[in-house]
Structure formats: structure tokens, C-alpha cells
Design a binder for these strands. Structure first.
Lengths: 203, 203, 203, 203
DNA sequence: TATGAATGAGTGTTCATTCAT
DNA sequence: GATGAATGAACACTCATTCAT
């Protein structure tokens, strides 16, 4: 018995197929060097169909960027909702979660890097990222402050700690393109934590 | 008295003018969205002249990438030649130097990020960067080891420390696109140092 | 009542329109001096369309050369199928047919000459012509031999007769570019026949 | 002792070097696909020098075509000056001479074919060839007529015989691109002669 | 809704020609 | 006279987008 899907569900699935094909190819080839025809082929549809679901190549890129961002955002904005406990524990868990997220969403992260590298080309998307960063700074602020009060974290401006943490997250993706052993992620987590406070004991 | 330049000197200057124009535009617009005609205009020459000095748009991009890399390399490979003293001092000075370098070579760093984001598109250049990273790891190794023996640095694999340091350097450029107060660079330096060992005192 | 054409039929027609325009212009202007835009204009399509039907200017030239050759081949290879009777009759009819063919396919013959004039530039096409010539030599061989046995034809190697016949056919096209009276073709036929054997009586 | 050359002689030699390089390359690559820079390289001069001796690429092509033609002309126009004796002997010797000429001036003949193939592109040069053909027809006329009166030659219009003879000469160059045994030239000579009259005995 | 043929603006590259040295 | 750097018109080809079927 084949599953009965409503027309709307079918459309949603096809749209999503195209979107995923686009994420893959945009991340590999960049905006300019990705051809709509290739996306269509990857998605298994005719390239006319791409334009049925997305107004233009540009609009598709925006969707590719914005839609996954919403999901990722929750792990960066609603920190105290996702991670509970002592500040040190919260930060540890958060870093674990983010590092795992970044290691899994490899392709999507390249899209982010592309946008970061071209602020003038993608101003709308770039501003979304700025908002994202600022939202994270605001959101992580009480956690760091609490940690500082308890003497766990460095007495730095919380925004500096937040930004340097985002830097290392982003930078790792650039610097460790090929490596992806779970081992490594564990170690990286430890190094990221050291931007918050001195962690001398191993493990 | 007008300066007398030999033909060879003139050619060198013109080549360099084109190269600099190319760095500017490639970094702003990426490889694909930079037009050779724009580079020519920026350099103040006809676009035919660009092809007198560089075989193709691609070859120009390679030169744009490789030539400044040679210069930057010296500050990452010949560490003990540039920075002397106690391990902690060496690392502090090195980070200062690198952060300053990165803040000054803003445009060139975008080129590096473009290459990092497209390993399959620019395999030759990407491998150059890999060599660069490995060279740095080898070169920094004795310094970190000495610091570890003195109890200043974390007991981590030196390659992990080196890589996480490169990550934050790279990531900063992505995360702090617009900001460039000297204040900030000072603070960043401190955070970078914390990947090597616990630095609790300010300044 | 307008004719209902399937999409495939329409495509075939359009392809053929482009091919014919290309034959005309390539024959007039040669490969290098024919612009794809001109072919498109002559065919009444946009030049983008030319690339929908042919991969490149070069591929179009190959099609222009190869496709009509197939048709012409039949009159040179399947000689005993097309022309029946006494050897002398066969050759007379064959020459008539070939001369007529050559006078009608004026444009196409120039393409052949271009290829003959540039063996290194069009090696694939040139080899096709070589095969064609050799096929003719083999095919005409029994006819000439029979004629020789009957005493009608010169006792020369059949390949020499065949080649000299092809030479005069080809050469006529070069030497008599402008002339095309039916009178002339009749006379030429007679001269061609004289390469096979002595024809002293007029008409 | 090195030979002392006047400046004028040196110039003549250099001009001739360029001209010969041009014959070689134009014949191989055609007008459009031959680059002036290549001709210069082949001649061992800078390409600026080519323009010192010839006004333009086009003018060089004209010289390449016209200057050797003058030399060849003499063997086609001044027939009775070069070849003496009975009409049959004159024609035999002439054909020998022409065939030899054509087999030696391979490259130049390709230039002629290029011009013949593009009457509209090279009208001036094409007309030169027309004049050449007509000159030959006029010049050979009395010889053929004499041969006809003696019963050696076919009773065809002398212009037809002349033209068909030129056709086979030209065509051979096209049809036998690669072959060049002296054997073959001997045989071809015999076939060419058969356009004038019936030659049944071998040798 | 899905398709893919048609379109033509846009771009890298070539190369004859000029001209300052 | 000889050179070759500079120029820019010209052209093949790509590809996003449209639209008839």
C-alpha cells in the first residue's frame, strides 16, 4: 500500500527535495558557480520546476540560507531553555551541542561562510547573521555572568567571550575541512571551553 | 627630475598594480563574480593588458593567492627566527604579530577564506594552505613543548593547540568583519592566548 | 487546416534549418570566418538556439560535413546498384550522375574542399574523405576491369583511373566556379569519360 | 670573410624570409587561422617587423599569393616559348613541367585553392586567377588547334580541353594530398594527356 | 503543474594593429 | 629599422529566465 499524500504534502516534499539539492550544490560550488540546471538534476526535476517553487536563483539561495538558520538559531538563542544546571555545565553542554551541530551541518556552514565572506553581495542575509550573533551575545550573557560570579570564567566582557567562541566555531570549520573523527571534536570542545575559563584537568 | 625607470621596472610596477587591483576585487566579489574588465579598470589599464601580464583570469587568481602567501608564511614558519625569549613571550609576540597581520591584510584573508570554502574548486591553492598549516604545526611544536615543560601551557597535543589557534584567527576574520578598533584586537589577542594556557590576569 | 507537427518533428525541422544555413555560410566564408551569430540569423533563430541543437561551432561544422556525405556516398559506393548495363554505359551514367550531383551540391562541395585543404585542422573529417575515396576505388574496380576486358578502357591500374576521375570532378568545381550552363556539364562529362577510355565520337 | 651585403640586399632577404614563412603558415592554416605572431616567429623576427615590410595581414596574404603566381604564370602563358616541337610533344612536355611544378609547389597550391574556394572574400586575387586561366586558354589554343589538325587531339573546343586540363591539375592536388611518389606523377601525366587526345600505348 | 526549447545579455579571451622606446 | 607592450573590437559560448505546450 503506497502512502496517500495530499497534493499539498507532495508539493512540500518536492520543494524540500529541491532545497536540499540546492544546499548541497551551493555549498560545494558557491552561488555564482552553481547552475540552476544542476540543482534541478540533483533534485531529479526539470529545471523549469525549480522556478515553480522558487522565484529565482537568488530567492532559492535566500531560502537555502534562511530556513536552516531558523532551526540552528534555537540552539544559540534559547540557551537556558536547552541547557540546564550550573553555568559551567550549561556552557559545556552548549559547546558539545554546537560542535556536534557544526560537524553535522557541514554543508550548511559553508553557505554561512559564503555569506560572511560577501557582506556587500548578500546584505540581507548578512544582517540576519549579525542579528544572530547579537542574539547569541545577549542570550549567553547571563550564563557567563553567573559563571564569572562563581569564579569559573574569566573576567572579560561577556560579548568578547561570546564572539571569540563564535570565532573558533566558525574557524574550525575552515581549518579542519577534512578531519572529522569524533576524537577531534571532543578535543575541540575542550579548547572552546578554554575561551570561557581555565580548564586544566583533562577530560 | 623625473625618475628614470627601466622597462623591466615599469613592467614590474604595472604587474603589481594589476595584482593589487585583483586582490581588492577578488576579495570583495569572489572569483566568479569578479570580471576581468573590472580589474583592468581598477588598475587603470585596458583589459587586454591584464592578459599581457597574466595568462588567464584563473592564473591571475592563483598569483593573487600565492604571492602574498609567501610573505605571510615567514611569520608562521620561521617563528623562532622572528620571536625570541621565553615560550610565553614568544607566543604572546607571535599572536600580536599575527592578529595585526590579519587585521591589516583584511582583503587577502577573504581570498584565503574563499579558497578554504572551495577545496574542490581550487585544489592546488587549497593544498598550499594545507602545507602552510602543517608547516606552522611543526614550527610551533618546540615552542609549545617548552612552555608545557615550564608549566605555562596546557598539556594538550601541540597540534591541537596550533589548530585551534589557527581556527580562532581565521574565525575572527569571519565573525568580526566590520569591527576593527585596536581595543578589540588587544582583547582578541588575550583570548587567543588562552588556547595555549590559562591566563587569568588582565593585560 | 494547419499541419499538426509533433514536437520531435518540429525539432527535426529546426535542426535542419540551422544545418542548411550553416552549409550555406560555411561554404561561403569558411569555418573560421563564419560567425555563429550569422548562421543563427540566416536560419532565423537566436544564436542561443544554435547551441541547443549543436554542441559547438566545431560540432556544427562536423555535422555539416558528415551528414550530406552519407547521402552522396551512396552514389559513389553502391555503383553497381545504381547503374546497370555494359561497363561503358555504367560509367557514362555514373559520370552523368556525379557531374549533376556536383553541379547541384555546389555549396557542399566547397566544404569538402575546405576539409581537403586542411587535413591537419580537420583530421577526423579528412579521414572520412580518405575512406570515401578508397571505398570508391574498390567499388569501381570491377566495372573498370570489365571494361578493360572488353577493350573499351585503358589498360591502367583501376585505382589510377578512379583517382584521376575524382581529381577532375573535384578540380572542375574549383576551376569552373561561376559557369554552370547545362552545355558545359555535358562537355565535362565527355572529358571525364576520356580518363577511362578513348572516346572519339562526339555526343 | 663574411659576405658584405648592402642594406637594400639585407632588406630584400628579410622580406623574403617573412614571405616564405607566410606561405608555409597560410597554406597550412588558411588566412583567418594564421596569426601574424606565428609568421613572425617562423621567420625569426619580431611581429612588429612584419608590419615594417607589409602593411597588414591582408597585404601580406596578397603578396604571398601574387608574387609566386608571376613565376608560375610563365609556364602557363608563354607555352610556345618554353616548349618546342610537334604539338603532341609540346603538350607532353608542358604537362610534365606543370605536374612537376605542382608537386614541388605544394604549399603555394593550397593558397590557390583557398582563393578559389573564397571568390567573394578575395575578389582581387580571384580575378588574377581568372585572368590566369583565360591567359592559358588563349596561349594553349594554337597548340591544340595544330594538334587537332594533325589528328592527334580530340575535336573539342580548345577552351574545354584547356579547362578540363586545369581541372585535373587542380583536383589532383586535392585528391592526392599525401601521395607523392614519382611513379604516381608519371601516371598522372599520362591521364592528363588523355584529356587532349587518345593515348593508348603505355609510356 | 511540469517541462525544456528559445532567448540574448554578459564575459573570458584572442589577436591585428599601433606606437613609444 | 626593430621591438613588443598596450589597446579594444570581435566572437564563442554560458546560463538564468520565460513561456508555449
Amino acid at each position: 500500500m503506497e502512502p496517500k499524500l495530499t497534493i499539498d504534502e507532495k508539493k512540500k516534499i518536492k520543494r524540500s527535495t529541491i532545497l536540499n539539492a540546492a544546499i548541497k550544490l551551493y555549498s560545494e560550488n558557491g552561488f555564482a558557480e552553481t547552475k540552476v540546471a544542476e540543482i534541478a538534476k540533483e533534485a531529479g526535476v526539470s529545471f523549469g520546476t525549480v522556478f515553480t517553487y522558487f522565484d529565482s536563483k537568488e530567492a532559492l539561495y535566500e531560502s537555502v540560507f534562511l530556513e536552516p538558520l531558523e532551526e540552528i538559531k534555537t540552539y544559540f538563542i534559547e540557551i537556558e531553555k536547552h541547557f540546564k544546571g550550573e553555568p559551567l555545565e550549561v556552557v559545556k553542554e552548549m559547546i558539545d551541542c554546537h560542535v556536534q551541530l557544526f560537524s553535522m551541518r557541514n554543508e550548511y556552514l559553508r553557505i554561512i561562510q559564503q555569506v560572511l565572506a560577501r557582506p556587500d553581495r548578500f546584505p540581507k542575509l548578512f544582517n540576519e547573521l549579525n542579528d544572530f550573533v547579537n542574539g547569541f551575545i545577549v542570550s549567553i550573557h547571563p550564563v557567563i555572568e553567573a559563571g564569572q560570579r562563581l569564579g569559573y570564567f574569566y573576567e572579560e566582557p561577556t560579548s568578547l567571550i561570546a564572539k571569540s567562541y563564535l570565532s573558533i566555531l566558525n574557524g574550525m570549520r575552515l581549518t579542519f575541512v577534512d578531519e572529522s573523527t569524533s576524537m577531534m571534536w571532543k578535543e575541540i570542545t575542550r579548547q572552546a571551553l578554554r575561551l570561557f575559563g581555565p580548564i586544566t584537568n583533562k577530560g
